[in-house]
Amino acid sequence: MSSRPVLHHQLEQGLAAMGLALPPGAVERLLDYQSLLERWNGTYNLTAVRDPAEMVTRHLLDSLAILPYVEGDRLADLGTGPGLPGIPLAIAAPGREVLLVDSNGKKVRFLREAIRALKLEGVRAVQSRVEEVEGRFDCVTARAFASLADMLAWGGHLLAPAGRWLAMKGKPPAEEIAALPSGFVVQAVHALDVPGLGAERSLVVIGRGAGESGAAAPC
């Protein structure tokens, strides 16, 4: 079992390796979130990751790897589970309105407790199917949620006209990119280097194509 100082050092080293400078107190709040997730996980089975050090790598650092690509004032994190990447992003860059969406009741109960305990201003959690969520967001994030086609079919209506969809993937999904629904275009594919992970990670950045009206994209 890793001690808090060990986890603190691991997280700070990982952030430095990724070139990320967070606001004062953010590292401690991230570790508070990890600790809360660890406690709830014993009862509610929120994540298959049990080891605290592995949580730092696979949850915190993996989520924060996309921080340089997040922009705008409103972010929706779809299929967020226990708040990934939405909560680490909210802690690392406060001041943005963040909506955490998941259909699992026990996960949403945890999210609401995390928002309360961590005093995350501007962050709220909703239990809902993605296709039933309303609103427009400058940035939409999704981590291991579904195929690109399914993500956009269910949640494409949430993306603002000039917004960007950040889809977190393992290897670059060439077949999924080739099957992207009409009305959406891949703007970039970035390789993500997550310190200590030892697995391939990529980020697919998607925007609206010319003539997209804002309706949900078809499969």
Rank of each mutant, 00 (worst) to 15 (best):
P5F: 12
G14P: 06
A16W: 08
A16R: 14
A21C: 14
L22N: 05
P23C: 04
G25W: 04
A26C: 02
V27T: 13
L30V: 11
L30R: 07
L30Y: 10
D32T: 05
Q34R: 13
L36K: 08
L37K: 13
L46R: 14
V49E: 12
P52N: 12
R58K: 14
H59L: 11
L60E: 02
L61C: 03
S63A: 14
Y69R: 14
V70T: 03
E71F: 06
R74Q: 10
R74S: 14
L75S: 03
G83H: 02
P85R: 09
I87T: 13
A93I: 00
R96P: 00
E97L: 01
L99W: 02
L99N: 00
L100C: 05
V101T: 00
K107V: 08
R109G: 06
E113G: 09
A114Y: 10
I115C: 14
R116W: 11
L118H: 14
K119R: 15
V133C: 04
R136D: 09
R143H: 06
R143D: 02
A144E: 00
A146C: 05
M151V: 01
L152C: 10
L152K: 05
G156N: 03
H157S: 10
L158G: 08
A162M: 05
A162F: 00
P173E: 03
E176Y: 07
P181R: 04
S182Y: 01
Q187M: 14
A191G: 08
A191P: 04
V194Q: 08
A199F: 14
A199Q: 08
R201Q: 02
R201L: 01
L203Q: 06
L203K: 00
V204R: 01
V205S: 07
V205N: 04
S213Q: 13
